[in-house]
Amino acid sequence: MSLSARLDRWLAPAPGGARAGFLKTTSYAHRGLHGDGLIENSRAAALAAIAAGHGIECDVQAAADGEAFVFHDAVLDRLTGERGALADRTPAALAAIRLTGTDETLPRLTELLDLIGGRATLLIEVKARNAQVGRLCRSVLDALLGYEGVAAVMSFNPEVGHWFAVNAPGVVRGLVMTEEKDHGWRGRLRRHAALWRAKPDFLAYDVRDLPSRFAAAQRARGLPLLTWTVRSDAARQIAVAHADAIIYERPVAG
């Protein structure tokens, strides 16, 4: 066994099968089942995923006070009539902003959880820069307290996984990874370092990187491997061969 494999087992042990195995049982609509007039990360997209019988992947960003809002971008420009950073707005201000072309406003994470009500497995991608990690993770944890549905958190930022490992070890946590523009020995070292810091229960891996020696090694030792974003039948075939579950966008179905 290589030194890196030994360190992986020691510093980021794999979860027991019962802890994260539920993640393998469904496909996940990326930002909800959007398209065909439905906006990503909207209530309507979440309901469409539930109707399809699939899980939901969503993104959360921090409002000015750290409260978690369901939105992908750091700025409001692309999907609303407003401009500027989401993090500069108060929760009250964000809750009044409408998604372009709809009557929907930006949902709080608490509102999305109430809407789902345990009817679908939820993956919450925490979009946190290091300075925001504590406040946003605390908001996500507060929203999940008392929630009776099935949910897990994940992030590209290994500090998010580290925060949950230290402060809320009962919450299933994942590490989102891509090898894009990060190849060679430096990239491999960064991936291992992120793994050791986050101590994830699962990985969510860029489908464009599969098959991947790193991802395959983690999967072989017991970390469920999800893959994103599957948008074609060809990508789905790769995902089925090398991962445990897919995070997809239309027109691909799970």
Rank of each mutant, 00 (worst) to 15 (best):
A128N: 10
A63C: 13
A52W: 08
A49N: 06
R78Q: 10
A29M: 03
L145I: 12
G161N: 00
A51C: 11
L113F: 09
V133K: 01
L99N: 10
D73N: 03
L99G: 11
A46F: 12
R129G: 06
P158Q: 03
A52F: 08
D77I: 00
L79I: 07
V166F: 09
A48Q: 03
N130C: 09
A48L: 05
D73W: 00
N130E: 13
E111T: 06
G134L: 09
F156R: 01
E111M: 05
R89F: 13
L115H: 10
N41H: 11
L145W: 03
N41V: 08
R119M: 08
C137D: 07
A168C: 13
A168R: 14
L33F: 14
K127C: 02
A48R: 00
L106H: 01
P169S: 06
T80N: 08
L33V: 13
D88L: 15
E57I: 04
D36H: 14
E148D: 09
E148Q: 15
L47D: 15
C137Q: 06
L141A: 11
I97E: 02
F156P: 06
A95I: 10
G146T: 10
L76C: 06
R119N: 10
V140S: 08
D36A: 15
P158G: 03
L136N: 07
A151K: 04
C58G: 11
I116D: 08
I116K: 14
A143K: 02
I116T: 14
V150E: 11
L94H: 00
G53S: 09
E111I: 05
V166N: 14
D114L: 06
F164Y: 02
R98L: 14
A68L: 05
D88Q: 15
H30P: 15
N167F: 06
C137E: 08
R78P: 01
G84M: 02
L144P: 00
D65E: 02
A62P: 12
A96L: 14
Y147C: 03
D142A: 15
T90H: 15
L79S: 05
I39C: 13
A68S: 09
C58L: 15
D114T: 12
T80S: 09
E57H: 04
E67M: 04
G118I: 11
G55Q: 04
G32S: 12
D59I: 02
D36C: 14
R31W: 05
V60E: 01
A95R: 14
R108E: 05
A48Y: 02
A165P: 00
G84W: 02
V166A: 13
S42G: 13
Q132Y: 04
A165Q: 08
C58Y: 06
G161E: 00
S139G: 12
V140M: 06
A128Q: 10
E67Q: 11
A85C: 12
N41T: 08
A48T: 08
G146A: 09
